[in-house]
């Protein structure tokens, strides 16, 4: 398997037409999930303003961080007077799941040039990852180039929801009523995606163990429980699959 590394840019007109089609398919199929990124942005924007950040820095942290949960965690820690080291570690821990997604994605998105890999990495989000990998598993014959287009379409939809939400949240600031509880859209969005990731007995076990351990580990500092629960779920699924193979 020593195929030469070439980039995934479409060459012929028919390739470009196919790429456009699949890009917009990813975009459209991600649209329902943008309710989650929009509401996360709304909360993050409002929280940044409430913490005393300017409109410019609220939009800047949303752009350069591009991470809803981690942004909420670091802003909250900063306003409660945590040290920089603690804030940085907490942000890193909350985002560590992206290293797992990054590894998983890199197996599907091969043959990309450096710029494409940078964009794919920078804008990696949970919903676009979940949607894309669900498609990649259902269509294993699609080329890396087609996969990249699909993922980029999904990512554009996520980005639009995120920046629209952040913009509105920043503008509304603390004026947004807490009683709306828009933050609950986030777990509901993930809930809608579970069915696509659970396919057989081993993945069911991974999901159940991940869920249970996350409850037991809920008191862990800096949302470290998420990481512990993920590793426990992955290990459980792995063990079940090993048993089944015998």
């Amino acid at each position: 398997m020593s195929e030469p590394q070439k980039d995934a840019t479409p060459q012929t007109p028919s390739e470009r037409a196919e790429a456009r089609t699949i890009f917009w398919r990813g975009f459209v199929q991600m649209l329902p999930g943008t309710t989650g990124s929009f509401s996360t942005g709304l909360i993050c924007g409002a929280a940044a303003i409430a913490a005393g950040m300017s409109s410019l820095s609220s939009m800047a942290i949303a752009t350069f961080g591009f991470a809803g949960t981690a942004q909420l965690v670091v802003v909250q820690l900063a306003t409660t007077g945590s040290t920089l080291v603690v804030i940085a570690l907490a942000g890193l821990i909350v985002n560590l799941r992206y290293a797992m997604f990054s590894l998983s994605m890199s197996r599907y998105l091969t043959h990309m040039n450096r710029r494409q890999r940078f964009i794919a990495a920078f804008f990696l989000t949970d919903p676009a990852y979940a949607l894309s990998v669900a498609r990649f598993t259902q269509h294993p014959d699609e080329s890396p180039r087609i996969r990249y287009e699909y993922y980029m379409g999904a990512t554009l939809a996520m980005g639009i929801g995120w920046f629209a939400g952040t913009g509105l949240g920043t503008a509304l600031g603390a004026a947004m009523p807490a009683s709306w509880q828009v933050e609950f859209c986030v777990p509901l969005t993930f809930l809608a995606m579970v069915a696509a990731t659970v396919r057989d007995r081993a993945t069911v076990v991974a999901a159940v163990v991940g869920g249970i351990v996350s409850l037991l580990a809920v008191g862990f500092p800096y949302r470290g429980g998420l990481l512990v629960a993920s590793v426990a779920g992955i290990a459980a699924g792995y063990v079940v699959e090993s048993w089944q193979r015998r």
Partner: peptide, 21 residues
């Protein structure tokens, strides 16, 4: 092989505390 279980394990871990705690 372990990678296959990442999405299945992570999403319930994100969801469960938000609904049960």
């Amino acid at each position: 092989r372990a990678l296959r279980f990442v999405p299945a394990a992570v999403f319930p871990a994100l969801i469960m505390p938000a609904i049960l705690i």
